[in-house]
């Protein structure tokens, strides 16, 4: 059974009588330990897809399931628990709390996991160490550069040790060196058995991931899986599942 499964997922928005298809009939399976990149032009629906994969948003049509459990049937409490424990989300716009400092921001998911303050502090420091931000603990997000904020967001996504890591443009604001470190971190996480999905505009980064999904206008237009001996599938509609 796939870890995450999307079947015929569409997301429609009504804007002044006009219907926008942000996602159009997407079917997808993601397994444990996979390292996947999603590429596509701006406005193609990447972020929308990530929100649905991260249980933040629900599709207009189609079903999403985690380990066979359909989220349409999950209570809001179960969803909160999944977001807290199973998913680590790095937002394109970081979404840090401006009133909290770096450590407090990283501690946030652990508060809702019910961890005590000592454990929280310890783990937050470790996670920040990991993204090389151990020296800016007391800063507010507004006092950090874009790349630093991004790394705080990454630390926050990892701190509850989720099984699925969703990163929306995680290296967009980073220099080449730091970007590579973060990529190495993600690769390592995938190697440890976590499912890592990242959105990128950068073909070089996409080339690193074993599996690559390209979307355009809300549809999957290209689907490459290096593990299938470079098999190229220009029409994924016929073969929705890569493995």
């Amino acid at each position: 059974m796939a870890l995450l499964e999307l079947r015929g997922v569409s997301k429609l928005y009504q804007l002044g009588g006009e219907e926008i298809r942000a996602l159009d009939d997407i079917s997808l399976e993601l397994n444990e330990g996979e390292f996947v990149s999603i590429i596509g032009p701006s406005g193609s629906g990447k972020t929308t897809l990530m929100h649905i994969l991260g249980f933040l948003d629900s599709p207009t049509r189609g079903s999403v399931s985690l380990e066979g459990m359909e989220i349409g049937k999950a209570s809001s409490r179960e969803l909160a628990r999944i977001r807290n424990r199973s998913i680590g989300f790095v937002f394109q716009s970081f979404n840090l709390l401006p009133k909290l400092n770096v450590v407090q921001n990283v501690e946030l998911p652990m508060i809702y996991a019910g961890l005590g303050s000592r454990v929280r502090r310890e783990r937050a420091l470790k996670a920040l160490e990991m993204v090389d931000l151990g020296n800016r603990l007391k800063n507010r997000p507004s006092q950090l550069s874009g790349g630093q904020q991004q790394r705080v967001a990454i630390a926050r996504a990892l701190v509850n040790n989720p099984r699925i890591i969703l990163a929306d443009e995680p290296t967009g604001n980073l220099d080449t060196h730091t970007g590579e470190l973060i990529l190495a971190l993600f690769r390592r996480l995938a190697a440890e058995g976590r499912t890592v999905i990242l959105v990128t505009h950068n073909p070089e980064i996409a080339a690193v991931t074993p599996r690559r999904i390209e979307i355009r206008n809300g549809k999957i237009v290209d689907h490459v899986d290096a593990r299938l001996a470079g098999l190229h599938r220009p029409n994924p509609e016929q073969v929705p599942s890569a493995t």
Binding site: L56, R77, A80, R81, F89, N95, L96, P109, Y112
Partner: peptide, 14 residues
Amino acid sequence: EIGIRKAVGAGDLD
């Protein structure tokens, strides 16, 4: 803020 808290796992009750 409420959106962010919920996104990282805050439940309705929290």
